[in-house]
């Protein structure tokens, strides 16, 4: 018995494995050992209703996009927390004019470019509503007037999974720790992934509106980064009752963004169809 115990103890030293579910670093954050998270924000509960993510594809040189944004902002106001809007800048309309004093900010993102390529987006403004499919595994690109109708359709679908976001923020070190928890209310029939965005609201910068260059246009809900890569990380199980928690770090010191206007958006989507089945948001800080 003594020999067996010794063997078991010795063996345990050799057993070590690191299973990596997300190969991509979340912002390569170096966290000081003495970091103090002095602020925290949580998302509102979404356990009964399917929330909706409206992804609006836009560009600061797109003359028709401000008109599209009007639709997006109206939906955002009308549906409150249950509809989350994200503006994704891309295509040729998002090019910059460095050194000219106009359109110098690059609002494009790696994730945004991946989606534009994957979903075949060319003309903007266009939007996806929970990345609803057109029936042939293609994400349906909807013109602004059609957004609200699809929002209503999506909200009528059952809530299969709930997402809770808990953000901790260190005001001194400008480090965000976000914890995304999910729990399945109905069994999902596919495999699912979690993607986490940081978006920034109320950025004042140039925008072309018709033929007019507006220097102080208010850009809403701008996608800044998908912090766990464009296509996210695996949700390990989708049986009813399955729970999952994933944690990500982000260092705002490396960016020029105003963290007080930044929001964490987390959504779960069907890995096959790309359809989003739940989404939640929470501000980075309470300030």
């Amino acid at each position: 018995m003594k020999k067996i115990l010794i063997i078991v103890i010795i063996s345990s030293f050799f057993i070590s494995c690191d299973k990596v579910t997300n190969p991509y670093p979340s912002g390569n954050v170096v966290v000081p050992t003495d970091v103090v998270y002095d602020d925290s924000v949580s998302s509102s509960p979404n356990s009964t209703v399917r929330y909706v993510l409206l992804e609006e594809y836009t560009g600061h040189k797109c003359p028709n996009c401000p008109a599209g944004a009007v639709y997006a902002n109206a939906i955002d106001s009308a549906y409150g927390d249950t509809v989350i809007v994200t503006s994704i800048h891309g295509t040729n309309f998002a090019s910059t004019n460095p050194g000219t004093g106009m359109y110098e900010t690059d609002f494009t993102t790696e994730a945004g470019n991946d989606y534009i390529s994957a979903f075949g987006i060319s003309g903007i403004p266009r939007g996806t509503v929970n990345r609803k499919n057109d029936g042939s595994n293609n994400v349906e690109l909807i013109a602004p007037p059609g957004w609200e109708n699809e929002v209503k359709n999506q909200k009528a679908l059952p809530c299969d999974v709930k997402i809770d976001i808990k953000n901790w923020f260190s005001t001194s070190d400008k480090i965000l720790k976000t914890e995304i928890s999910s729990e399945w209310l109905n069994t999902g029939a596919s495999t699912y992934k979690l993607t986490v965005y940081i978006i920034e609201d109320n950025i004042i910068d140039w925008q072309l509106d018709g033929a007019t260059n507006i220097p102080n246009y208010r850009h809403r809900h701008v996608l800044r980064k998908a912090i766990n890569s464009s296509w996210g990380t695996d949700i390990p199980a989708s049986a009813v009752g399955s729970k999952d928690t994933q944690e990500f770090l982000f260092d705002f010191k490396t960016e020029t963004w105003n963290y007080e206007n930044c929001i964490v958006v987390a959504y779960i989507y069907d890995a096959t169809t790309k359809e989003i089945i739940q989404v939640a948001e929470a501000h980075v800080s309470s300030h």
Partner: peptide, 21 residues
């Protein structure tokens, strides 16, 4: 048998498993 290796993750672009069994 069980064999594992340890090598630090010094890659900026990927999260590499430091212990592979």
């Amino acid at each position: 048998s069980f064999v594992s290796k340890f090598q630090p993750d010094e890659d900026a672009n990927l999260v590499l498993p430091e212990n592979v069994g």
